[in-house]
């Protein structure tokens, strides 16, 4: 029968994997939705990339690649952000939230498990998206430095995890419309981060905000590694801000989440369905 007392770290790692396995099972069971959403992503990505295809031949190649990277990176960041920020929404909807919060695990374990899944799932989904897009448009990757791009992806993911954790408090805090409020955060990030255009076209007062968005550095880093083939040695101005944002935003996100969890337990908001 159940043995309850593995060493603390082993217990937490095991519990972390519980979230990875559960989410993989959910992806498997909701395969219809996964396919539908994937087709939507392909369609919306292509409708942006074809703007580049419509340009003069001399500009076309670089613009297609710039927009293609924008759509791929944004699809990845949205995937990571949504997986984390929906961890409360999903459990509320299924009615399992009280059981997860009653389990003898730390909240950090809960979040790390969810984060680990979100990164692995995001990378796999983006790779599949890249293959699908390559069937429609010619993406010139002859100069790409894939190792450097992977490092930028992993470091950049950290900062998005922190933002995702902070966003996940919204459904806990606002039981009725909290989930919808997370869309506002991703919409603002899309606007200010230079996903489809350089941040220099933004009004003067918005540009400083762009500098605070990790997606700005993430996109810059990926474009420089894929289009210009830059290596890690040339990416200090991208990796350092991403690392600092990740190191600051994850503990801050966890701290804020714990405060809101206490608030939810004080006011009885865990059990409400929104």
């Amino acid at each position: 029968m159940a043995v309850f007392n593995p060493p603390g770290i082993a217990r937490e790692v095991r519990a972390s994997y519980a979230f990875v396995e559960r989410n993989m099972n959910l992806v498997k069971r909701y395969w219809g939705w996964e396919i539908a959403f994937f087709l939507y992503t392909i369609s919306s990505s292509l409708s942006v990339i074809y703007i580049g295809e419509a340009q003069d031949p001399e500009r076309r190649g670089e613009l297609v690649l710039t927009l293609g990277i924008g759509t791929l990176v944004w699809a990845y960041l949205r995937s990571v952000f949504d997986s984390i920020s929906e961890m409360i929404t999903w459990e509320r909807w299924e009615g399992t939230i009280e059981y997860t919060f009653m389990a003898p695990i730390s909240r950090l374990t809960h979040m790390l498990g969810t984060a680990l899944f979100s990164i692995v799932y995001g990378i796999l989904r983006t790779a599949a998206l890249f293959v699908a897009l390559a069937l429609f448009v010619d993406l010139d990757l002859s100069r790409a430095n894939f190792v450097a791009a992977l490092v930028v992806t992993l470091v950049g993911s950290l900062s998005f995890l922190g933002i995702g954790i902070m966003a996940s408090i919204l459904p806990l805090w606002f039981t009725e419309r909290g989930a919808e409020m997370t869309f506002m955060i991703s919409a603002i990030l899309l606007l200010i981060s230079g996903v489809y255009y350089p941040i220099s076209v933004l009004p003067d007062w918005l540009e400083p905000l762009a500098r605070l968005s990790p997606a700005t550095y993430f996109l810059d880093g990926i474009r420089r590694t894929v289009i210009s083939g830059q290596g890690l040695a040339q990416l200090g101005d991208v990796l350092l801000p991403l690392l600092v944002m990740g190191v600051l935003s994850i503990p801050l996100g966890v701290w804020v989440f714990l405060r809101v969890e206490t608030y939810a337990k004080r006011t009885g908001r865990l059990k409400r369905n929104g």
Binding site: V3, N5, R14, Y17, E21, R22, R29, P104
Partner: peptide, 16 residues
């Protein structure tokens, strides 16, 4: 959408 087995795998892993 998950099976009893998948649900219980999740729950038991959380309890060690």
């Amino acid at each position: 959408k998950l099976s009893p087995f998948e649900n219980l795998m999740y729950a038991t892993r959380l309890y060690g």
